[in-house]
Design a protein around this nucleic acid. Structure first.
Length: 332
DNA sequence: TCCATTTGACCCGC
DNA sequence: GCGGGTCAAATGGA
């Protein structure tokens, strides 16, 4: 019974999404689009509520990252170990990716953000150590985004990447950096020296090369993507949550030419029952380090109403009535 | 000289 | 007490 209601909600969401898609190509009013987006959100909220009623724990509200909720570090303290912060729990990851790279084993994916490694730990039961990264602009801009990278036990060519927290820094990522000159970065970070700029440029080139050699075997799996508002900030351009709320998110996509850059082939479900997405290499060159962001957000389509940038691809997704929605593993 | 990485130690939740 | 997460001194590269 609930399953039927769930399917209805999902179908409705798909239909309204298609409608919204049409309106995007029409001179329809901003208000109309807003209404459609609200309908989509409503459908997914209802679907999530149904799942919650079935005993499945599905977060429907954005959980503030534990990183963000932590008090800021008191750098004035003479001995920082005296003011140790509470250890973060493993929950609250905004994105979990499984990145398969057949080429670079040590540097899985440059996602366009500048990460600084701050630790590495051997994990019990894991053959490979886990690397801990945080945003380079943690101190300069207070960006609290962190990520963990760990090779998969089963396949060393697969990296399990977890993202936590949102980027509040003003980074010129891949996408912007490709089309905007370095001067943009100078504007954003005037204190950056020319030497630093060269380093960043070199890094971006590295990322481009890494991706150009990435091959067609790239596979990204997203997990635990229940939180749409935690997902949106991972876009390479600054989309504020307010924009999402007031409906200008789609416009932000358009403004950033994201919609126009993603074709159905770019993000396509590889299988009907997994949230693996295959990527064709021809699409990588233009996005490079944006990759994980671009992928991670849209792949949340199963849980996120408007996370799917290529809305038209929804047409190809059919909801199988026999799909095991009551199987918790599906939502893992 | 500056910055990123490495790595051992420390802290905290379970 | 164990294991995971973080800190920060040491180290190396550009």
């Amino acid at each position: 019974m609930e399953q039927e209601a769930l399917l209805n909600e999902l179908k409705e969401g798909r239909e309204v999404t298609n409608l919204l898609m049409k309106h995007l190509h029409l001179p329809s009013s901003h208000q109309t689009r807003l209404v459609l987006i609200e309908k989509i959100l409503g459908s997914y909220e209802n679907a999530l509520s149904i799942l919650n009623c079935n005993g499945l724990v599905v977060e429907t509200k954005p959980s503030l990252s534990t990183m963000e909720s932590l008090p800021s570090i008191d750098h004035s303290s003479p001995d920082k170990r005296d003011v140790y912060k509470k250890r973060k729990t493993s929950s609250g990851w905004t994105e979990q990716l499984r990145v398969c790279s057949g080429t670079s084993l040590d540097n899985p994916i440059d996602d366009g953000f500048c990460w600084r490694k701050y630790g590495q730990k051997a994990i019990l039961g894991s053959n490979f150590p886990r690397g801990y990264y945080r945003c380079t602009h943690r101190h300069s801009q207070g960006c609290l985004a962190i990520k963990q990278v760990q090779k998969s036990n089963d396949d060393p060519t697969i990296f399990e990447v977890k993202y936590k927290g949102r980027h509040t820094c003003n980074q010129t990522s891949h996408f912007a950096a490709t089309y905007v000159s370095v001067s943009t970065e100078s504007e954003n970070e005037g204190n950056y020296s020319r030497k630093r700029q060269h380093q960043l440029e070199a890094k971006q080139k590295q990322a481009q090369q890494a991706f150009s050699s990435f091959g067609s075997g790239l596979m990204v799996k997203t997990e635990d993507l229940d939180n749409r508002e935690d997902i949106f900030p991972s876009f390479p351009f600054p989309v504020e949550s307010e924009q999402v709320k007031n409906g200008s998110f789609v416009e932000a996509l358009m403004e950033n030419d994201i919609m126009g850059n993603i074709s159905p082939a770019f993000i396509s479900p590889a299988t009907s029952e997994s949230n693996y997405f295959s990527m064709s290499p021809c699409h990588m060159g233009c996005f490079e380090s944006d990759l994980t962001d671009i992928i991670s957000a849209p792949t949340s389509v199963t849980n996120s109403p408007i996370g799917d940038l290529d809305i038209s691809s929804l047409d190809k997704l059919e909801f199988d009535p026999s799909f095991p929605f009551d199987n918790p593993e599906f939502f893992y």
